[in-house]
Design a protein around this nucleic acid. Structure first.
Lengths: 359, 359
DNA sequence: TTGTAAGCGTTATCAT
DNA sequence: ATGATAACGCTTACAA
């Protein structure tokens, strides 16, 4: 019955392996600390978990010294195994290539780090259907909660299934069916800002260029706001959804917008920085220039927006704040907040540049 | 002695809690599978780990069915605890805001996913000194290895200390002291390509604009190659390191470059996309335009490079391949490859656009 | 106030 | 070929 090894056998460990403590490669364990401090693992654990209240200062100090000496750090995996919490947060991003996503990521990361969480990133690379894979991988790692950033063109159902009771917050894209917190730009007012600004710049003929609406809430909210606003203000408005790589179609749409405007200057609103890039390429192909042949406002501010032509007017999203809000929200849930799903909408900011100046 | 619970007690589990299997929240465990399949945990484990060789097809099938039925996925945490391997790879990035880093990240992620690893991201946000924090956090999570992307302006020592025997690969920035694999653009030839291209475009007066060299290997390699190449070709060359946000200094440097060139057209080479952005802003401030007053080539190709002025000529890095190479390299190490540190240098590609056309 | 021991979900080492 | 069972590093009743 070789079950006990705590018996005070001289020193040679029952197994052949020397204790990890010697810096022999492995990290120090709680047992090493306990041994060095001359206390039990339980005591060390108590020190670690702020149960100091019940501890002799002397012992606590000894333990802390040992921890220092061995530069011991508890293993979150082992902790997670025991208490079911891993201090890991799963972040699923539709396309890490998009500067918006990166900016949001930064906010998320900061908030998480401050709260002692680590972010595990899963990038979908815009491949539809990998959501399932992502959520499964992440939840296998026992992430405590999910942040889904611009994810899921079709996968509403899956979310429900896969989250399996873990809290989650959606960023940018809404799924009413999903009982999750939601953080996003307040699209309606942002679009209204763009339209009104263009009208003040003298434009009466507006074209909204967007990626395919599909069921992406942010896109269709912008679309709806565009239509409503244009109608209210008595402007001429149309919408162009650019699919994949069809450059000719976009060129045609722009040409037609200009024709429809007669002698006036048409205006384009791009739904995000991807669309902005597309429009900019088209403008180059057509030999037009921003501000002159075409007034322009684009959603998402980027480093290069001020440098294109006379500068591109944009609607800047409060990306850092969005990320922070998402993370804070999730962390509150993890701490037991059971309130009804929250909805956090943050305002955009209009950055006026040359592309929308009155001519 | 209530130690055994495997005794065939009818059905009620000894503990009050019902088995997780019922979807009651927790995930199914190997014990659930074993129970359902009517075998031992060991057998299930064997099926999981491809030890099928020794298994009755019948039993194996039963186990697999049970796994299906419970949609069981092994817990990497528990596995990690046991075998010391977590299938986690730690990625430390100096600044996730930099498109180069993102592009590399994508390559890394793909390779890792294919090999069944998950990437844990730690972004330094360009804050010096957070490397230590990053490495400690990641190694607490028992990541099996590290990829350090453009990291460590000063922290060579730390790397050694902190990696604690775990394999690591450096990307973009070299630390000879570090006994690690290294993956990067082949800077010398890339710079040579830029310089020769500009000479062919008729430029004889070159200015290299770079972030502060400090001890960043990629920067100083480019710097060295620039100087050597300029000398060999009998051109006039100088170098400007732009610190923080000092716009005036950069403007002055550009003005001086132009003055020094006399009537000829000076050329600028930017060391990366950050420098490119800076130069572009300066050019705008000075009222110059790319191609006309100034020939230009910049390291790092970006979405917007073709759209600035007449299009910016760039040196495109094979970012996806770099990421892939880094990950593959690390994974080989994790599989036991003990060879001497590898060095993988990949060639750049010159993308010629309007900013460097002969006038 | 501190120590003992059971258990989290795996894998590995024995037996059988 | 399969089953007990001890460990992995930690937390937490419960005992002392």
């Amino acid at each position: 019955m070789p079950r006990k090894r705590s018996a005070p056998v001289p020193s040679s460990p029952a197994q052949g392996v020397p204790p990890a403590s010697a810096g022999g490669g492995g990290r120090a364990t709680i047992a090493d600390v306990a041994r060095l401090a001359g206390v039990s693992k339980a005591t060390v654990s108590r020190v670690l978990n702020q149960r100091d209240a019940l501890l002799t200062p002397d012992i606590a100090a000894r333990v802390r010294t040992a921890i220092e000496a061995l530069s011991y750090v508890p293993s979150p995996m082992a902790q997670g195994l025991k208490r079911g919490r891993t201090k890991l947060i799963g972040l699923v991003v539709a396309d890490i290539t998009n500067p918006y996503s990166v900016a949001v990521l930064r906010g998320i990361e900061q908030a998480c780090q401050e709260a002692g969480y680590l972010v595990v990133l899963f990038n979908l690379g815009n491949e539809r259907g990998r959501e399932r894979q992502a959520i499964e991988a992440l939840s296998a790692y026992q992430v405590e909660g999910f942040i889904l950033n611009r994810v899921g063109e079709d996968a509403a159902v899956m979310g429900e299934l896969a989250s399996a009771g873990r809290p989650m917050v959606l960023v940018d894209r809404r799924y009413p069916a999903l009982q999750a917190d939601f953080v996003s730009l307040d699209n309606g007012p942002a679009m209204r800002m763009a339209v009104e600004h263009l009208r003040e710049a003298g434009c009466q003929d507006l074209l909204f260029v967007t990626e395919p609406l599909r069921d992406v809430s942010s896109r269709s909210e912008r679309d709806a706001a565009f239509r409503a606003c244009v109608r209210e203000l008595g402007l001429a408005g149309s919408v162009f959804e650019h699919a994949g790589e069809d450059e000719a179609a976009l060129d045609a749409a722009l040409r037609q917008a200009r024709a429809a405007a007669g002698g006036r200057r048409p205006a384009v609103i791009a739904g995000n920085s991807v669309s902005t890039l597309r429009v900019a390429r088209a403008v180059a192909r057509l030999g037009w220039s921003f501000g002159a042949e075409l007034a322009f406002v684009g959603f998402d501010d980027t480093d290069w927006a001020p440098l294109l032509g006379p500068g591109l007017t944009t609607i800047e999203q409060p990306t850092a704040a969005l990320g922070r809000a998402a993370a804070d929200c999730l962390i509150r849930r993890l701490q037991g907040d059971k309130a009804a799903p929250r909805e956090i909408l943050l305002p955009g900011r209009l950055r006026i540049r040359g592309s929308s100046r009155p001519r």
